[in-house]
Each structure stands twice: as structure tokens, then as C-alpha cells.
Amino acid sequence: MNRTIPAIAAAALLVVIAGTANAQWPAYPSRDVPRTRDGAVDLEAPAPRTAEGRVDFTGIWAARFGGGGGGGRGGPPGANNNQAPSDSPPVASFGEVGRGITGGAPYTYLAREVKEKRMARGMQDNPDAHCLPMGHMQFHLHPQPRKMIQTEDVIVLLYEGNAGIRQIFLDGRPSPDNDPLPWWYGYSTGHWEGDELVVVTTHMKDDGWLDVNGSPFTSTGTLTERFRRPTFGSLEIDVTIEDPAAYTEPFTVRVNQRIMVDTNLIEFVCIENEQSSEYYD
């Protein structure tokens, strides 16, 4: 047998363990990045503020996730190895919103059935698998980054994964009461409670997929997200999920993200070369 194969295999293993080269996207320096004396990004520096004195969430953010996803898409509930401190809500994973909750999210009987059916079909009905918008928790935790652009009146969230777009209105408007169309992203309004931005989202479509495993979300639901930026480098979002059609009680989970500097989003057009759906049932 070819003697080069073991050498190649050994080299491959070495590279696997060592990791690959990183970040070849053209570097363009981000402005106003705090640096340490050695030039590194000072992730522990205070969060920046807007001219109005608000915490500024503007930036590109990467999900911090550990032990999540993959084939098991989040593993069993209660198995979270990216657990938050004891005084924090359990950390959600991309695959399983209730991963950090003992016993899992508090599904109603029907919602649990829906989720189990979705998993039994290999999650092939996840809207993302058809290039349709992901559920909110998937967007929060997707490994492709997202960009927050903040003005006094609105925050725009651009998600690289599946090219999602979301608006959070900060101009004091209420959630609509004129029966608007239900939307993939819902209708989001925000207000400030000190340095915390509280965002309430309603008017979402039925048959939602909060996570890859298919935890349901319906048009009766409300998401309340509390955004905090404790340091320059970190973003915390505590998400309270309230949906009497799918969950027996409200529950809150934590999303952690980290800043990315000197980079930008990359175009992502999902339908460009989507072939997987040819193989679905």
C-alpha cells in the first residue's frame, strides 16, 4: 500500500489538532476599538456609548457556544457544558433552546409532540433547510455572525446566516394592534431600562422553529429580550419565551455573544445553490 498515506494521515491529524488558519476576509480596521498596551483588543474595556449616552450595541457579533449542536443538535436537556453562572439563566444552544434547563423547556403536551415529530423527520422541515428565515434563537446562536446597527430610533440586525434582517423600533411606538400580517421576524419594539435594552417581539407566524430541534413557537407568543453589553467585547441577551400555545409557563434562557473587529459580514444568498431539498421526503 502507498506509504505516503500514513504520512498524509499523520499530517492531517496534526492539522486537525492544531486548527486551521483563520480569518482571510480582507481586514479593514474597525474604528474606536480599545486596545491594550500590546495592541490587542481590550475586550474588558467599558462598553461604548452613543452621543445620547446609551450603551451602543453597534458591532459585529459572534455567538459564543460550547457543547452545542452538531448531529445531536444540542444534546439532551440538562447537558449544557456552557453553563452560565448560577445566578444567570441557563444558556441556550443553537440546537436546543432548553438545553440548560433540567428536564428541558416546559413544553405543552402538544408542543412536545410537534417537536418530536420534527426531530423524527431529521429536522428536514426546519425553514432554514429550505432557505427560509430561521427562528429567533437560531439567529441569535447561528455560527455565522450578525451585525447590529444602532441609531436613536431603531436598531437594525443583519444576520449573515440566511441573510436575515430584523428591525427593533426604539422610537416609543407600541406593538401594533391593527392585526398586521404575522411575520417571520415578528414586530419588535424596544425601550431602555438603565443600560439594559428591553425588546418585546410579537406578531410572529405559527409553526415557528425556535431552534434546530424544532421547539415550537406560535402566533400567540411573545419574546422578551434583554440586551446588555457588560464590556466592550461581550454581549448578553436574556430571552424570555412566553407562548401559552406551546409552553406551560414562561422561561428564560441566556445567549452569549462576543465582538468581532476588523471584519464584516459576507454576502450569503441561500437559494443560490440549494440542492439538499432534493433529498427530503
Binding site: G70, N126, C131, S277, Y279, Y280
Partner: peptide, 25 residues
Amino acid sequence: LISIAAAATSLLGIAAYSHHSFASQ
């Protein structure tokens, strides 16, 4: 090579993401 890749994958807890469910395809 398959064994090496599988072992490394297992050791590092590696899994690949697709926009679809890997297991469905």
C-alpha cells in the same frame, strides 16, 4: 484516513453544520 478523521472528529467533539439537518440527508 477515514479512521484518522473519525477519531479526530470524535476526540474534538466535532460535527458539521449544514443549513439542512445533516442526518436528514
